[in-house]
Simulated scan of single mutants.
Amino acid sequence: MKSSFSQSLKIQLRVIGALLLREVLTRYGRHNLGFLWLFLEPLLFTIGIIILWSYAKLHSGSISIIAFAITGYSYVLMWRNIGGRLAGAVEPNLSLMYHRNVRIIDVYWSRILLEIAGITISFILLMTSFIVLGLIAPPDNIFLMLCAWLLLALFTVGLGFLVGVLSEISEVFDRIWHTFTYLFLPFSGAFFFVDTLPTKLQTYALYVPPIHAIEMLRHGYYGHLIQTHEEPVYLFMVSITMLLLGLLGVSWLNKKVIPS
């Protein structure tokens, strides 16, 4: 029994690895910068936001606008990109479903891992580069930042699965999702601290699960310089619920999708 499980796991990991490599080659190609775009793309997006916000002087006091922009936009890229990549991900890979070891969940995992890897690498490179250059101070609590990033990743995995399943069920949802990601940006917590909101609005803002991730991430970076309002247990419970619902949806989708 143990040997059978171990063999199945190895096969599954090889399938996801092959799909991951295929995804990299399909998206970035073999020439020019190729694989480097995996983390250069989010890197350049974040640098652009830093320049824009710094020029507009959207900061006050001892709060570093550079660190604020890095944490905020990297956080946005995480939940927005993964949902976007999984929306409509089945149709381009239908021909692969003829292989008995390839399932929808493998396609989803390959895209999720690719996005998380690229955004995480760009986030680490940005933080490290600006710290070395002396433009921002080192984080106050790296462990807290790591926990926040892992919780954010868990949330985006659950969100990605749900978006992927719902986009296959309804073409209308697929179109609405991309619009929603832009409309949601002002309310996502990327561009403000919850503590700066009126007390009544703070209560409503904290019902939004990913806000707890960005609050926790910035708490880890700024430490005592800011007041944050994160509830990691709430974020964890919501993320696990979404993940379970997403996995149930993928299981149902496997029975409905016919390879072409």
Score class of each variant (00 low, 15 high):
100 R>E: 06
106 D>R: 12
33 L>C: 11
15 V>L: 14
120 T>F: 05
136 I>V: 15
103 R>Y: 15
74 S>E: 13
114 L>K: 07
242 M>R: 14
156 T>F: 10
171 E>P: 15
179 T>W: 12
97 M>Q: 08
133 L>K: 07
191 F>H: 03
245 L>A: 14
111 R>V: 03
215 E>N: 08
128 T>K: 06
234 Y>K: 00
36 L>E: 07
117 A>V: 12
75 Y>V: 07
159 L>S: 10
163 V>W: 08
201 L>I: 02
223 G>V: 00
129 S>F: 15
53 W>I: 06
104 I>V: 11
209 P>V: 01
149 W>V: 04
104 I>T: 03
140 D>L: 03
254 N>F: 02
183 L>N: 05
28 Y>H: 11
37 W>Q: 03
177 W>D: 15
213 A>K: 02
29 G>N: 13
75 Y>M: 01
80 R>W: 10
96 L>K: 14
173 F>D: 15
223 G>Y: 02
154 L>A: 07
92 P>G: 13
116 I>L: 00
118 G>H: 01
204 Y>T: 12
234 Y>A: 00
137 A>L: 13
241 T>N: 11
114 L>S: 02
241 T>H: 04
126 L>N: 05
257 V>D: 04
42 P>F: 06
80 R>M: 14
239 S>C: 02
102 V>P: 06
163 V>Y: 06
33 L>E: 10
153 A>S: 10
183 L>K: 13
9 L>E: 04
215 E>S: 14
9 L>C: 14
232 P>A: 02
183 L>Y: 15
189 G>F: 00
126 L>R: 07
144 L>H: 01
32 N>M: 12
238 V>E: 00
54 S>P: 07
74 S>K: 07
202 Q>I: 00
212 H>A: 01
152 L>D: 06
151 L>Y: 00
30 R>A: 10
15 V>M: 10
140 D>A: 10
230 E>I: 08
30 R>K: 11
42 P>N: 03
23 E>F: 07
134 G>E: 14
182 Y>I: 14
210 P>N: 08
40 L>S: 13
14 R>D: 12
220 G>K: 01
41 E>A: 09
241 T>R: 13
144 L>P: 00
242 M>P: 08
245 L>W: 02
92 P>T: 09
61 G>W: 05
81 N>T: 14
25 L>R: 13
200 K>T: 09
186 P>W: 02
49 I>C: 03
113 L>F: 04
133 L>A: 13
46 T>F: 04
7 Q>S: 05
188 S>Q: 02
113 L>N: 03
60 S>N: 04
168 E>A: 04
134 G>F: 05
41 E>V: 09
30 R>C: 12
109 W>E: 13
25 L>H: 11
77 L>R: 05
52 L>A: 09
73 Y>W: 04
132 V>T: 13
89 A>S: 15
98 Y>N: 12
95 S>M: 15
256 K>G: 08
146 L>T: 13
118 G>W: 00
188 S>T: 11
231 E>Y: 05
117 A>K: 10
148 A>C: 08
44 L>H: 09
